[in-house]
Each structure stands twice: as C-alpha cells, then as structure tokens.
Nucleic acid binder design. Sequence first.
DNA 1: CAGACTAGTAATCAACTGATAACATGTCAA
DNA 2: TTGACATGTTATCAGTTGATTACTAGTCTG
Lengths: 199, 199
Amino acid sequence: MAPPVKQTRMSATERRELVLAAASRAFARDGYHGTSTDAVAREAGVSQPYVVRMFGSKSRLFADVFDRAMSRILDTFEPWFDGVAADPENDESWLPMGVAYTQLLEDRDLLLVMMHGFTSGANPEIGALARDWMSRLYTQIRTRTGCSPERARIFIANGMLLNTLLAMQVPEHAGQDPALEELAVCAFGNTLDAAGSEN
Amino acid sequence: MAPPVKQTRMSATERRELVLAAASRAFARDGYHGTSTDAVAREAGVSQPYVVRMFGSKSRLFADVFDRAMSRILDTFEPWFDGVAADPENDESWLPMGVAYTQLLEDRDLLLVMMHGFTSGANPEIGALARDWMSRLYTQIRTRTGCSPERARIFIANGMLLNTLLAMQVPEHAGQDPALEELAVCAFGNTLDAAGSEN
DNA sequence: CAGACTAGTAATCAACTGATAACATGTCAA
DNA sequence: TTGACATGTTATCAGTTGATTACTAGTCTG
C-alpha cells in the first residue's frame, strides 16, 4: 500500500489553460458535434463535470476554443502584412504570407478548429461567431495591406483550400495517391515536409 | 372512427431515393456527427429503424449521400471544361466554370455535403472517401482542361472558399455586415442573389 | 387463393451525452 | 487554527442515439 499522496492543486487559470489546450486538440480532430465533453476531460486529465462547470456548457467551451484559435491566427498574420502593403496587387508581395501560414502549420489545431467553426455555421451561436471572425479576418487583410477585395478574396480562398486539405489529412496520406500528392505539393509548397509525413 | 385506410406502398428504389434526398438535406445542414438517423427518418417520413436497415449503418448512409453529391458535382462541371481547354492558363477561360458553379448553387446541399465530407477527414472511412474524391476532382480538372497544377489548385481553392461561405450561411446574413457583404459579392459575384436573400 | 416475398413499423436496448447535485480536499488570510 | 473559499471528484440522471428484433401488412406469382 502506498501512503496517501499529498495532492498539489493547480490554479484555476492554469487548469483552464490545460483544458482549453485539450479541447483544442479534441475539437480540431472531430469537430464540435464529434467531440464529447468527456473526451475533452480525459484528454485534459480531469473529470467530465469539471469541464462542463468550468465553461458553463459544451457550446461555450467551443466558443472559447474557437475565439482563441481565431485570435491567434489573426495575430500570426499581423506582422507580415506590412511587407504586403508596399505593392498589394502584386502576386509576389504576398509570398511572405506563406511564411506566416507555415508558422500556423506548426500548430495545426488552430487551423482545424477554425475550419470546424466555419462549417458549423448551421448552429446559430457558432454561425454568428464564425461570420464575425471571418469579417474581422477580411477587414484585417484589407485595412492592413490596402489591397483590393479581389486580392483579399484570393488570400482567404487559398487559406480555405489549405485548411480543407489539412482536415482531409491529405499531407499524411499524399504518398498513396499521385494526383493528391501533386495537389498537395502545389498547395503547400516546401512546407509540406513540415506539415505531413510525421506520421 | 375512420375506416382503415388501404395503404399503398412504394418501390424500394423509390423510397431509397426519398431517404437519400432527405439525408442529403439533413447532412448538408448539420454534418455527419450533427445528424441523427432519426432526424433523417423524420425528414423522409419513414421510421428510424427503416433508415438504418436500408443502408446498414449511419456511416454507410453518409457515404452513399457523399458519393452521390460528389458524383453530381463532377458531372455538373464536366461539360464546361471544353471551353477552358482552349487556353487553360488564361484567367478569362475559366469564367464559364463560374456558370457551372451557379448551377450547383441551385442545390446547395450538394456543396454542403461535399464540405462536411471533407472536414470529416479524421473519421477513417469518410476520410479515405473524401481524399479519393478530391483526387478524382483534381484529376478531372487537369486532364479535361490540360491546365497546370497551379491552375487546378486555384480553381479548387475558389470552390473551397465558396463552400465555406455557404456553410457559414454568409449569403443569408451578408446584409448585416458590410465587410462580409463585400467579400460575398466579390466571391459569388452576380450569383449572390440566387444564393442568398431567399430567407 | 395460397404462400413467398417485399415494404414497412413498433418495441426495445445498451451505450453515450451533457448537465446537475452533493460531497471532499487543498489553500490562504485573519 | 480555523473557517471561508477555491479546486476538484463521485454519483447520478434524463434524454438521445444507432442498432436489433419481432411483428404487420401489401404485392406478386403459380
């Protein structure tokens, strides 16, 4: 028999961070409906009721996770817009944004949570949140670079393609399909190595 | 008391079509995990066990719905590729594909089912199916138009943006947000009227 | 018209889910 | 040290879900 271990406790904010990180991984993998609060709890190493009470409800937990993800994504883009602003209608000016995206690929969960949030638009709460963040993203691109709507549209479209390919786990499976491989190389460029083939 | 009504029955294939159409609407709205077999059954006007037994399982039902959607999407694009093939590296050559997409907007469920299938890539069965169809789509674009990988990538990226905006219900809510409105107009062009504002 | 087949339903179930309530334990200020 | 509060857990629950079984009724053929 081991003697009773003296349990040390965590501050609420610390634990909250832990749960949010776990929830981010879980939601990134299986989306809002595909993730149970119990799955989040197990991933965070706490009890399921604690997760619910900490955030009030599953939907509020997702909203928090989604907000954080979007906030970080916009923050990651932020410093790179300056380079684009000089000549925003030129294709080449946007190349640095690819670097920004490569940074985001280091924590894919952010992009996957974004995508799951966007495709849960039929849910009224999530839908309103998603549209609001999409609006902020578009506005940030336009105002920071001074580009045309068309340029901003192209940038977002490329992002949506990359997110979709990530959600489909194309990087992990590209080797099994030449056509998919070609598309992946074309879409991710050199960053593919960082993105896939870890598994 | 009404006398017992003589019930007429439907052929299995007829009923199957009905259920597939109902499932398509339901899955388009709420995705794979967000849709219960009971919801599909109610939408189709049949009992829940009948839906399950007719397709074996929920996942096989989704696979059927997804297959049909992708098949129809590719068929819709098919005849329009000829126009692109003449000069596939020219932006303007691709304009007719916008018309093809407008046709697809008449039954948005196809595009939404596609999107939900793509973003359910973490599910092994759905993921494999999704990647296979993405591969087919890419291959069809390349071989039918003779375009470069980059051109095909752009076409798919634009499609993913439109699908995402649809899933977010942007057309229905664009009026509430000028930035979103601008993006929607830029992305959907004239087809926006057909797409949104019905509600 | 008999019997085999087909098109369906009602009843039921075990597993899961989000949420609540009651309780236990660590921590810190007075 | 004590008591108030913050950090957690266990027990529990009602509703939902996908699936199975058993049953009913229309339809078609010989």
